[in-house]
């Protein structure tokens, strides 16, 4: 009998330290597809300790699923430590590079919008601006919304990175 799914998904930021070894990333990503979990964004890079990579991902899921996700991730031999940043106070940032058509009157308008958002114009041609913006996902969404009319040509988002506020750390 078909049942109606009530969507009680919440947004979770999982941040983890894993061995910086070949195959580690594919095991994390594979786990998500294999078990039907969702990934909204994913970012990964080595840390100051080159043997470790820090991976941050955003997933939308309910409470029972997040428990399974964290357990299954912890079970991966390559995963050293893990935190659900959304469980506490945290800082999250995403970087966007966006190329927009900027000619005529729009040119000034876009410049003003960029200033309001404290975005930086990092490359210029006679008809284009390439703008860099760092902020929360919401802020970046809002900026895209604000410049939408003026012909967005290309959007590159880094995915969210995050860190806990205060004394809490995710380190060895």
């Amino acid at each position: 009998m078909p049942t109606v799914d009530v969507d009680i998904s919440t947004r979770r930021i999982i941040s983890l330290l894993m061995e910086n070894s070949p195959g580690a990333l594919s095991r994390v990503v594979g786990l998500f597809s294999q078990r039907g979990y969702n990934i909204e964004t994913l970012t990964v890079a080595p840390t100051d300790d080159v043997t470790l990579s820090r991976l941050t991902l955003i997933t939308l899921c309910d409470d029972q699923t997040i428990e399974q996700i964290t357990k299954q991730l912890n079970k991966l031999v390559d995963v050293v430590k893990l935190v659900d940043l959304t469980e506490g106070e945290h800082i999250e940032r995403e970087l966007m590079l966006i190329k927009v058509r900027a000619s005529g009157e729009a040119r000034e308008e876009i410049k003003r919008t960029a200033d309001i958002f404290r975005a930086q114009i990092v490359d210029v041609t006679s008809s284009l601006y390439t703008i860099q913006l760092i902020g929360t996902q919401q802020k970046i969404d809002a900026f895209i919304e604000a410049v939408k009319g003026s012909n967005v040509i290309e959007v590159v988002r880094s995915g969210v990175s995050g860190i806990a506020r205060g004394e809490k750390v995710l380190a060895l």
């Binding site: 029972q64 428990e67 399974q68 357990k71 299954q72 912890n74 079970k75």
Partner: peptide, 8 residues
Amino acid sequence: VDPASISK
């Protein structure tokens, strides 16, 4: 022994 088996 496997925490992921609990409450799965």
